[in-house]
Design a protein around this nucleic acid. Structure first.
Lengths: 197, 197
DNA sequence: CCTGTGATGGCAGAAACTGACATCACGGAG
DNA sequence: CTCCGTGATGTCAGTTTCTGCCATCACAGG
């Protein structure tokens, strides 16, 4: 492999991010991206299923980190603690990429464009499914596995959003932990059940 | 209003569902739908933002029911119980539509087509945002409001999926309640905190 | 009778994607 | 060394989604 410029995929991602910042996501066509990367539109679609997907390059790594964290959790750990550990690991990975400007630019695009947000949500759902499967492999029964996964991802999302919104970034993992604690607090019903019992 | 056949929107929804069942979602074009409804493609896009949206007609009602339930909850109720009540109300509405075949047909399409699932997820997220706002109006602070809303919707989803998957439909609200209980159980950490303390 | 309004139709076009086929350097088999 | 399979890319035509712009035309109110 040396016939073409190497790392076509990486070049496409780079070109896309540049153009998105220059003209905005909506006003950048796939043809534009391909051209800047020195490729053709057709080749873009061989590397990415669609235009949005170029914003999610690397999400496979995230899933891998999460699954690894689950696998490494001590045997007797409670499911929710396992999920917390997995989400902390995910947070650490995002933070360690030192690509904070990239994270922010990406975040801006995702929140501004509903179509991209849709993609983000389905990626999260897919992550949740993988996490659920990993929990089930640890003998966590349903529906506890699904619920722990979904709730954990919700907590992660809240923590992440607060981290991004914060002026001084701080530690993402700390935000995530705080969200988990808050979730535990809000889902615990008072000792005396509410009226409807 | 009497110049055209009435209820263009309704006719489009009906035509769409028929065609989706006859040829499948992917092989049905918007032009097909419009033609069967006695309209043109251009008019379809005046009633629905895009092809997927025709599958979500009525989701506004769902949001209204949820918000009404939140508003009617007793003043001192715990946030999570308020959310439970709202989700039970949503479940009751879905069940009372007596459109069980429609619900199943729609469910099949949503689970089979990622693009439609994306739309479903963003609708859920939007519902979550509305629910969060309603909780905040009840003086529930952040991040408790966001977390209660997201966790509640996750529990509802699990309950709904189990209800749809069940051979004998049974009561949706009961499934939802069970999911809430299971969520509470899984998010409660043991009295002695896990290793990381 | 006249006119504004609102839902619709017609049409052209951009942009996202897809399928089928061609190209062409590299690397191994002979 | 030559030949051929392979794989990433290019080319091109075509479908589908979705938008902008303007025309139409019955109905309602003045």
């Amino acid at each position: 492999m040396g016939r073409w410029e190497p790392d076509a995929r990486g070049r496409l991602v780079k070109a896309a991010m540049e153009l998105f910042e220059e003209r905005g996501y909506a006003r950048t066509t796939v043809a534009d991206i391909a051209e800047r990367a020195g490729l053709t539109e057709r080749t873009f679609f061989r590397h990415f299923a669609d235009k949005r997907e170029v914003l999610f390059s690397g999400s496979e790594d995230l899933e891998a980190v999460i699954l690894a964290a689950v696998a490494q959790a001590p045997d007797g750990a409670a499911p929710f603690d396992v999920v917390l550990a997995a989400m902390e690991a995910a947070g650490a990975m995002i933070q360690e990429r030192r690509a904070m400007p990239f994270v922010r630019a990406r975040w801006a695009i995702v929140t501004e464009h509903a179509e991209v947000r849709e993609r983000e949500l389905i990626k999260m759902a897919s992550l949740g499914a993988a996490l659920t499967a990993a929990l089930r492999a640890r003998r966590v029964p349903e529906p506890a596995a699904s619920l722990a996964a979904a709730a954990g991802i919700a907590a992660f999302t809240v923590g992440f959003e607060r981290w991004v919104a914060a002026k001084r970034p701080g530690d993402l993992a700390a935000h995530v932990r705080a969200a988990f604690d808050a979730l535990e607090a809000v889902t615990s019903r008072a000792p005396a059940r509410a009226p409807r019992a």
